[in-house]
Simulated assay, not measured.
Amino acid sequence: MSDNLQQIVYISSAEHPFTDEEFAEMLAAIRENNEKIGVTGMLLYKDGDFIQVIEGEEHVLTPLYTTICQDNRHYSVVEMMRKPIVERQFKNWSMGFHHINNDDPRLEGFKRFFDDDTEHKIDPGEALSLLLIFRD
């Protein structure tokens, strides 16, 4: 394993409600690019909000995250966590994806991640835990 692996977790809001076709097109492009540059991760979407984790070499993730922040398909990008990692937690996913429904039992205890209350504090560890629940 590389000594330069990093993991970045961020949240953002969609510029508009995405259709299934838009997701399919976006994910195909992301997965193809991520496979080329050695990035793995998971993207969750619910009611216009995203939580994503990306993993890879630091020299690849830094410019990729800059590009992500400038993508006009979303706004209010907030980096929750950036840390060095020994091994990937999403190594089998060039970009895993879940469009979460309100009644998904895996969401229990995590609903505040997707509410509109700007006063709540989101714990970066809990954000990663939510992503990991949908990985398995």
Rank of each mutant, 00 (worst) to 15 (best):
K91Q: 08
V86S: 10
K83G: 01
Q52M: 08
I30E: 01
M81F: 02
K46M: 12
L61C: 13
Q70K: 13
E15L: 10
R31H: 04
I133Y: 08
K111A: 07
L43M: 08
T118N: 12
K36N: 15
I122K: 09
M81Q: 06
Y10L: 05
H59A: 15
Y75S: 07
K46G: 07
V86L: 06
I8W: 07
M26N: 08
I85S: 04
E15N: 14
W93Q: 14
E55I: 03
K36W: 02
E15Y: 12
E126L: 11
S129Q: 12
Y45D: 04
Q52T: 07
R31D: 10
L132H: 06
P105L: 13
F114S: 04
D20H: 13
K91P: 00
H16C: 02
Q89T: 07
W93V: 02
G109W: 07
D71Y: 09
K46N: 08
D49M: 13
I51V: 10
Y10C: 01
K36H: 09
V77R: 00
L130M: 15
P124L: 10
I133D: 05
M1E: 10
E87Q: 07
T66L: 09
D20F: 14
E22I: 01
L43N: 10
E57C: 08
E25L: 06
R106F: 13
H99Q: 08
I11T: 12
G56Q: 02
T66R: 10
N33H: 11
P124G: 09
N33V: 03
I37N: 03
G48M: 14
N33R: 12
Q70V: 03
A24T: 12
I85W: 01
Q7V: 03
D47C: 03
D115G: 04
E87N: 08
I122D: 02
N101R: 14
H120R: 11
Q6N: 05
K46E: 11
L27V: 02
I54D: 01
Q52S: 09
D20V: 06
S12P: 02
Q89K: 12
I68H: 09
R135M: 01
F18T: 07
G109N: 15
H99T: 04
F134C: 00
Q89P: 00
V53T: 06
P124Q: 10
W93K: 10
I37R: 11
N101Q: 15
A29F: 04
L132I: 09
A127S: 05
M95P: 03
